[in-house]
Amino acid sequence: MKKHGMINRDIAAALAAFGHTDLLVIADCGLPIPKGIQCIDLSYRIGEPSFLTVLQAVLEDFQAEAGFIAREITEENPEVESGILEQVNAAYITHDELKKMSKEAKLIIRTGEATPYANIVLRSGVIF
């Protein structure tokens, strides 16, 4: 049995298959999931698990070279924005651009988060 890091076997397997520049989306429960994109749905009730909890757990096991968040988060959800910026150096894009980027993702992890614009696109980096 795995002792450290991501213990969700579906997420661990998916992350192991990532290469440099592949895209990973961590999403709130309202973000549309594009057809044909693998989605691991962790939600089990409104708000659970939270976006920031999942983001932290993923970043402990995933090398991100860049992050992208919707600029609308600044007005609509500053608490989650602050939590994101504590963990990731993120660039701002529009929410529509974020949804377009999600169509290129290798994986979307859906959380139970039910606050506005609690989504991020992470671009995979390299560990060397």
Rank of each mutant, 00 (worst) to 15 (best):
Q87P: 05
S50F: 04
P49N: 06
E81T: 14
R71I: 12
P116S: 09
N119Y: 00
A57H: 10
E81K: 15
A57Y: 04
K106Y: 04
V54D: 01
L98R: 02
E72K: 04
N77S: 09
E72P: 00
I84F: 00
E81H: 10
A70N: 02
F68P: 10
E79A: 11
A66S: 13
E48C: 10
E86W: 08
D96N: 13
A66Y: 09
A64N: 01
I73T: 04
E104P: 07
E65T: 09
E86T: 11
E113T: 00
K100C: 11
V121R: 00
L85M: 10
T53G: 12
D96H: 13
V80G: 03
L59Y: 06
E113K: 02
M101P: 07
T111L: 03
S82T: 14
Q56I: 10
L85D: 08
E60N: 14
E72H: 02
A105T: 03
R71A: 11
A114W: 12
L55R: 00
T74Y: 13
I69N: 06
S82P: 07
F51P: 01
H95C: 00
G67W: 00
Y92V: 00
L55Q: 06
V58E: 05
P116M: 05
G47A: 02
P49A: 00
A57E: 12
I109P: 00
S50G: 15
E76K: 13
G67L: 02
V80N: 03
I109R: 04
S50L: 08
L52A: 09
V80F: 06
S102V: 09
L55W: 04
E65G: 07
A114C: 13
A91E: 14
E79H: 15
N89D: 12
A66V: 09
Y92I: 01
I93Y: 08
E60T: 12
A105D: 05
E72M: 07
S82A: 15
R110D: 02
E76L: 12
S50P: 08
E72W: 05
L85P: 05
M101N: 07
G47E: 01
E113R: 02
A114N: 15
A64G: 01
I109G: 04
K106T: 06
I73Q: 01
N119E: 03
A90G: 03
L59G: 05
A70C: 05
R110E: 01
I84S: 04
L85R: 15
N77I: 00
A114T: 09
P49W: 02
I109H: 05
G83N: 08
R45S: 13
G83T: 03
